[in-house]
Nucleic acid binder design. Structure first.
Length: 578
RNA sequence: GCGCCCGUAGCUCAAUCGGAUAGAGCACUGGCCUUCUAAGCCAGAUGUUGCAGGUUCGAGUCCUGCCGGGCGCGCCA
């Protein structure tokens, strides 16, 4: 609907020679928006004020000539000039009726844009380290990422969802030794669990399930040969000791089984949360497939690397980073940053045009250097987009909870899901802008779940389903074509409001997708549910008038479809009964 | 110290490349179930948009400075 208005407007402006050189002409489409006040009509544009700047003429005069040049259309009842030069469009009832018929025809596909082949988008999110179960902070990333993926698809983009598994490096050794020590403990050996190890209870559960033979290892030998030092040196000593006493292969198997156990748990948790990935990308595979070397070779070829203090540096500062970064350490080991460059390089090499990373706000410092990496390899700086998600602070009974994986003291996503339910959790997580901090009070979410806005929206959906059940009980039939033919009878204020809201849905999808802002959809659904509830209370749907009854049923049927579609994008169920 | 993000009603938050009178929920008060689910509806109050300047037809939104909060500034991952 908005699109049609924009096309008419663009035709009008292009037909006027005095604006042919104005730069604003390219963005006419984007200036058309819904009015906030129905007295201003249904759609408005500020294009006259924008043109006034570059052409140097009175905006109201410009508006006048634009209106005069606008082709006649059955879509529009009247066009008015208001205020400093707004052009307001009043849409005809017939046009709303026609659009409502579209909603019914498309059902839950209404508002979805046709698929476009470019750009191909890779959406990476969660990517939590596989060293423990997901906690409530990851839940926000999962909900936001999954919803954004759905939104982008609804807006017509081709999106692949990817989880980057940090299965390489020191943290895997720490995981391995943590599990091994719990195995020794379970066997009856006396151990002193290191401060830097993963202390969570889940480590004991993993240890209990591992069948690797560790009879070669004696706890007293292991602890007897520990170096003096801080907690990092102590755990390094334990890892080295275990590898030499038990064997590198044996320790490697324990490490791998621990990783698989945790990864299985994460996958199960996420799929249970309705969050699915197209690919789980292993960091270790970067090394195995020589991708890091390939990426470094590209950088070297482009003269982006140099040697200093025995290390290899990347000229990140040449591309906007605050300083150059090490990619190969003095000891010959590649840095994590080298993996990151290679990973993002690989994403582009796999054919993705646009990369979206959803990261915690504590990672903001790393954006510039990864972007520098891509840029230095010849990719456009804006092919990498990073959406930062602010922290979740969890409160239980008004008390702040700690969230440290290493200490093992945290509330898991699984616990949260069990306590408040998937629907409420998915909804709450995307209710507010991702750049706002989120306070999540468990007790509040549980004890007041009836006041949860998600139920308000679900209830609207269930109410419509209930009306259709009542219809069947009265042995009446819903005749949709007859209803569509009788849309002229929908003249009540509540009906007009509902129709207007329904036809906004495609615009909301576009808005929420383009701004990476699912909360737009959440607020829209709340408003739509409100329209339905108000209508429900003000008017009877199952009335004697055959035509009016079917017209009203068609209207709420369309509403049901849009609510179901919107909730589906957020990952929330649309129940027929509550 | 430098960098990024945030600051809007009592509380939690919205506000569509800058747009018309800054909006919702919660909480509070009163009213509405013999008719399709009262997890609902209707009516009612609240703002120096942290502070001070600037840009312009127009600023919560953009720019500068300051105040307050969060996060980040490794040859860690």
């Amino acid at each position: 609907m908005k699109n049609e208005i924009a096309i008419l407007l663009e035709q009008a402006i292009r037909s006027l020679p005095e604006f042919s050189d104005a730069p604003e002409i390219a963005s006419v489409h984007a200036t058309v928006e819904r009015t906030r006040d129905s007295r201003h009509g249904d759609f408005t544009t500020n294009i006259a004020m924008r043109l006034a700047k570059s052409v140097g003429r009175n905006p109201r005069e410009i508006a006048q000539s634009v209106i005069a040049a606008t082709p006649g259309s059955e879509l529009i009842d009247k066009i008015e000039i208001a205020g400093p030069g707004f052009i307001n469009f009043h849409v005809s009832p017939a046009a709303f009726n026609r659009e409502l018929a579209h909603v019914l025809r498309d059902g839950e596909n209404y508002g979805r844009q046709a698929t476009r082949t470019t750009p191909r988008i890779l959406l990476e999110f969660v990517s939590a380290n596989p060293t423990g179960p997901l906690h409530v902070g990851h839940g926000r990333h999962a909900s936001y990422g999954a919803t954004l993926g759905n939104l982008l698809e609804a807006a017509g983009y081709v999106v692949d969802r990817e989880y980057y598994v940090n299965d390489a490096g020191r943290q895997m050794d720490i995981l391995g030794i943590s599990v091994l020590l719990r195995m020794l403990e379970a066997r009856g050996d006396t151990i002193q669990f290191p401060e830097a190890g993963y202390k969570g209870e889940y480590i004991r559960e993993i240890a209990a399930a591992i069948t690797e033979d560790i009879s070669k290892l004696v706890a007293s030998d292991l602890f007897g040969n520990l170096p003096e030092g801080d907690k990092e040196e102590i755990i390094s000593g334990l890892i080295e000791g275990a590898e030499s006493m038990l064997g590198t292969d044996e320790f490697g198997r324990i490490r791998r089984q621990s990783l698989e156990s945790i990864l299985d748990d994460i996958k199960d948790d996420l799929s249970g949360f309705g969050v699915v990935f197209d690919r789980w990308f292993s960091e270790q595979s970067l090394t195995d497939d020589n991708l890091i070397d390939d990426a470094l070779a590209v950088l070297k070829k482009r003269n982006m690397l140099y040697q200093k203090d025995g290390a290899t540096w990347f000229r990140a500062a040449d591309f906007g980073d605050e300083k150059d970064r090490v990619v190969v350490r003095e000891n010959g080991k590649k840095t994590y940053f080298a993996s990151d460059i290679a990973y993002h390089y690989g994403k582009r090499e796999r054919g993705y045009d646009h990369l979206i990373d959803i990261l915690g706000s504590d990672h903001h410092g790393y954006i510039a250097r990864v972007r520098a990496g891509l840029q230095s390899m010849g990719y456009a700086a804006d092919c990498l987009e990073v959406e930062l998600v602010q922290f979740v602070t969890l409160y239980r009974a008004g008390e702040k909870m700690q969230m440290s994986t290493r200490s093992g003291e945290f509330v898991t996503l699984r616990q949260l899901r069990e306590e408040v339910g998937n629907d409420a959790a998915r909804f709450f997580y995307v209710m507010r802008s991702n750049d706002q901090h989120l306070d999540f009070d468990m007790e509040l979410a549980k004890s007041r779940s009836n006041e949860n806005p998600v139920y308000y929206i679900q209830y609207a959906h269930a109410r419509v389903a209930s009306v259709f059940r009542q219809l069947a009980e009265k042995s009446l039939e819903y005749e949709q074509p007859r209803g569509v033919a009788a849309f002229d009878k929908l003249t009540e204020t509540h009906e007009k409001a509902l129709m207007s809201s329904l036809t906004r849905y495609p615009e909301i999808i576009e808005l929420a997708a383009n701004n990476r802002a699912p909360q737009h959809l959440v607020h829209y659904l709340r408003d739509l549910a409100n329209d339905l509830h108000s209508y429900y209370n003000a008017h009877q749907f199952i009335v004697d008038d055959h035509d009016l009854r079917n017209a009203r049923l068609a209207l709420i049927d369309a509403t049901r479809a849009v609510i179901a579609s919107g909730l589906g994008i957020i990952g929330v169920s649309a129940p027929d009964a509550m």
